[in-house]
Design a protein around this nucleic acid. Structure first.
Lengths: 245, 245
DNA sequence: TCAAAAGTGTTCTTCATACACCCATGT
DNA sequence: ACATGGGTGTATGAAGAACACTTTTGA
């Protein structure tokens, strides 16, 4: 038996992936293509986020995880519900109307948006349904629906949260170098950071642990590897209430 | 013509009000009462947030503002959509089921939660429909549905945001004293702050402006009044990217 | 004159900031 | 040997943290 769909509620997933080599923060998108019935001409050819309708018997978090698993094959990723979009005219541009018509879905759909964090290293996108592709957040293609806005707001939330929670480690492999962490902060926040000051600050933290390991397979001086311990972080409970208004 | 209701989508409003005199952060609640059909005995007697179904032709923000206006008579208040609740069993305790039955509403309802910020000074709750009442956030009564959780998560979001945005001024009257601002921070964050250090820090900010006015009608030394200028705040654009992990 | 809250200074320590060169490694 | 990115130290100034008493006012 198929689960019953809730027709006017969907989830959309903004998947953020940090690429260590290109040092860029990326978003995972899928193609939205539609050919005209008569002329066989492409009348829609852009990209969109992955999403799907919610089922009757699942929570919002479960809906999001389900969509994500179908997209990447991965489970148990970090996810954050960050905003819900429900304007009656959020899907009112001509392409969106044609698309909704062809897919037979309700234009008065409310969508609950999540973002997911992952290291692009940890995903294999080959041979996946929907053919998902990474795009740098600073160089996104044309997007359908209100997905450009959704991505922008996800990014804002990610920035804010990154400043206070150890979120960014979800965007790195388990083992990482200090410079990779710095590149990540620079990509997420869109700022430049002084390397010496950054190292000093990071190395001082007890929950960032130097491993007895170095990078392998690099054609230069291999860097020291570190890991992040959530346990130690939680115990330390470094709630520094810096009122920063 | 009546607007058409979307039966499975609602908004709920957490109204935070700071009370200058009691120095406490409060939440606005309404009674949930139901009498048994036979015995005339109260079978439900607790409190809940205000909320209502969304209409077909409005945005989520409009729904929230509408509910809020009906509750307090006030318009154009600061509001923030912070989370959406959609678990299939979020309304599964016996009282909730009885209530839903009596009110004839769908238990599989997704609710989009907002919080509002206001100074209790600026609201007059007398003779309002629903008889709303303020409760200190540290001393809430028994709450129906999942509203205790919703309030807790609203408070968490408010705490986090208060550290980085000039949100708290929405909880004060236009003119306020330094000590009132300090009491507010203490109530919102649940911390104690050193008065001398706090004054020094606050007075240094250009967007906190000393007025040529003092408190009136107090039976002690009247305090200097200040106001917050959003314009100056925005221009200053003090985005100090203190990474605080 | 008293009660109540407003207002005020200093020291110490920590942390952010700015800045430029040598080092270790694989090729 | 060389190219590449890894790794290091110091000085200055700003701001946080700790701490107790005097002042002003209305009643």
């Amino acid at each position: 038996m198929n689960p019953k769909i809730i027709p006017n509620i969907s989830v959309d997933c903004v998947v953020f992936g940090f690429n260590i080599r290109s040092k860029s923060l990326n978003v995972l998108l899928i193609e939205r293509k539609l050919k005209s019935k008569d002329s066989n001409e492409l009348i829609i050819d852009d990209f969109k986020l992955t999403g799907y309708h919610m089922f009757e018997n699942e929570t919002l978090d479960q809906s999001a995880s389900r969509v994500m698993k179908e997209l990447t094959g991965l489970d148990h990723l970090y996810k954050k519900q960050f905003k819900t979009y429900g304007s009656p005219n959020r899907l009112m541009n001509p392409k969106d109307i044609i698309w909704a018509d062809s897919e037979n879905f309700n234009l008065r759909t409310l969508t609950v948006a999540y973002y997911f964090l992952i290291s692009t290293n940890d995903v294999n996108l080959e041979n996946r349904k929907y053919n998902p592709q990474w795009f740098p957040i600073l160089n996104l293609p044309e997007l359908g629906f209100d997905h450009e806005q959704i991505i922008a707001e996800a990014h804002e939330d990610l920035k804010l949260k990154s400043l206070h929670e150890p979120l960014v480690f979800k965007l790195l492999p388990n083992k990482f170098t200090i410079n990779e962490l710095q590149n990540l902060y620079e990509a997420v926040l869109g700022i430049e950071i002084d390397n010496r000051n950054f190292r000093r600050k990071v190395i001082k933290k007890k929950y960032i642990i130097a491993l007895n390991e170095k990078q392998v397979g690099v054609s230069k001086k291999p860097a020291q590897l570190y890991t992040f311990s959530m346990d130690i972080y939680k115990k330390a409970d470094e709630k520094s209430y810096l009122i920063n208004i």
